[in-house]
């Protein structure tokens, strides 16, 4: 699969007896925002570190643009590690210029690019301050700039949203969307599932080193059961229990939440509800990514 796709192909990694990654495969296509979710210790960080060559893999291959990623091509990846890291005593501008040059830019290009990102991420007033003197939020912005300053062809970001204030979250989201729109494959991990759901084109869920689900949010939720919330104040308890294909999840006051089996119709529920008296709310919602994540990760836990 050439054409600037980042492919993680059958990658495995063990630490002693612990299997960190077990034949992990997925790809991130150009122009795509790929969300990588999983519980702590599931293997997200290990997978990203392997893509960057910071950790060696036991087997498998990481490819970009149809070619195995080597030390030479790795300079084209923009990386934000989970453990944030910059030289605490180096000035913001110097630091960005240095990192850009280490990724192969000339001094002039590096300066221009560093200034561009400093302006873009609203760090202009802080450009000659030492990183350690910056607020945590501003340090995060510098960290993002460090991942972007060499104009990377691939972006790999480990928890880019953690610790950001809402405004910085918006800035970060815009930047990621913009990079994706420019044809860069972008992969990031996050625990903020609502954000992942809103932002990402596709999502991969990893559990204990294995990919358990991968696809668009619509794909992943299509097969899952639909939920209905019905507000019928006069309905007697247990009113919905007899409807075929319906499972009552909760019943309190006049609010009832039911889950429909795939083949069951929502109209039968509405009819039954109306039969009990007035209906103030009748809403249908697809399961959120959070629910999907809970069931994907939870299933494993009970196995």
């Amino acid at each position: 699969m050439p054409d600037r796709t980042l492919e993680i192909d059958d990658v495995s990694k063990r630490y002693g007896d612990v299997v960190a990654l077990d034949s992990v495969s997925f790809d991130v296509r150009p122009g795509e925002l790929f969300g990588f979710v999983g519980s702590n210790g599931a293997g997200k960080t290990t997978a990203m570190r392997i893509a960057l060559g910071v950790v060696s893999m036991d087997s498998g291959e990481v490819r970009f643009d149809g070619q195995a990623v080597t030390h030479e091509t790795r300079t084209r990846i923009g990386y934000m590690p989970e453990e944030r890291g910059l030289y605490p005593k180096m000035k913001v501008l110097d630091q960005l210029v240095y990192l850009a040059q280490l990724h192969g830019m000339t001094a002039n290009e590096a300066h221009r690019s560093a200034e561009t990102w400093i302006g873009r991420l609203e760090l202009t007033e802080r450009r000659t301050d030492e990183v350690q003197k910056l607020s945590l939020g501003n340090q995060q912005r510098v960290q993002l700039a460090a991942a972007l300053v060499h104009d990377p062809a691939v972006l790999v970001l480990d928890e880019p949203f953690s610790g950001l204030d809402p405004i910085a979250v918006d800035v970060m989201s815009d930047v990621l969307r913009e990079k994706a729109a420019a044809g860069v494959p972008v992969i990031f991990s996050s625990h903020q599932l609502d954000l992942v759901e809103r932002l990402c084109d596709r999502i991969g869920i990893i559990r204990s080193g294995r990919i358990v689900a991968c696809g668009t949010v619509a794909d992943l939720t299509a097969g899952a059961a639909t939920r209905l919330t019905v507000t019928a104040p006069e309905a007697p308890p247990g009113w919905a229990a007899g409807i075929p294909g319906v499972r009552v999840l909760s019943e309190s006051g006049g609010d009832t939440v039911v889950e429909l089996a795939a083949e069951a119709g929502d109209q039968a529920v509405l009819t039954a509800a109306l039969a009990t008296g007035p209906v103030h709310e009748f809403s249908r919602h697809r399961p959120s990514l959070t629910q999907l994540f809970r069931s994907a990760v939870g299933e494993g836990a009970t196995q």
Partner: peptide, 21 residues
Amino acid sequence: MNGPGNPTRSVRPATAVRLVA
């Protein structure tokens, strides 16, 4: 500035050592 995905860009070892030094 190189466009994204310019495949020619990489750092020679001597350059890397010089930059770090």
